[in-house]
Amino acid sequence: MTKAEIVQAVYSRLGGFSKKESADLVDLVFETMKETLGRGEKIKISGFGNFVLRDKRQRQGRNPQTGDPILITERRVLNFKASQILKQALNPRETASAAEE
């Protein structure tokens, strides 16, 4: 699925928006999320998942190709944690008891 298909979903399911407006709104959703995460804020979308930021310390790593040791600098990374609702949507037969982590 690409952004164009999400635009199509907004256009055809909601009604009242032109294709251009639908495209602008979908862009706005992702642009707003990007700017928010880019300010160091996490995002919680109930029913879908959380986009969380983690600060990683500097650490020693290796170049997987050559095996040479390299220093991995400290950095902030983005992780997505899927909500239980999304996980269950992908695993329809799963019972609630398997949802504990």
Partner: peptide, 22 residues
């Protein structure tokens, strides 16, 4: 399970936000 891989642009944006507290 769903898996998210951050895009290059967002990855850089997030890393550049280290000046801000989380």
């Amino acid at each position: 399970l769903p898996f998210f891989k951050v895009g290059k642009e967002l990855k850089e944006l997030v890393n550049a936000s280290r000046a801000y507290a989380i």
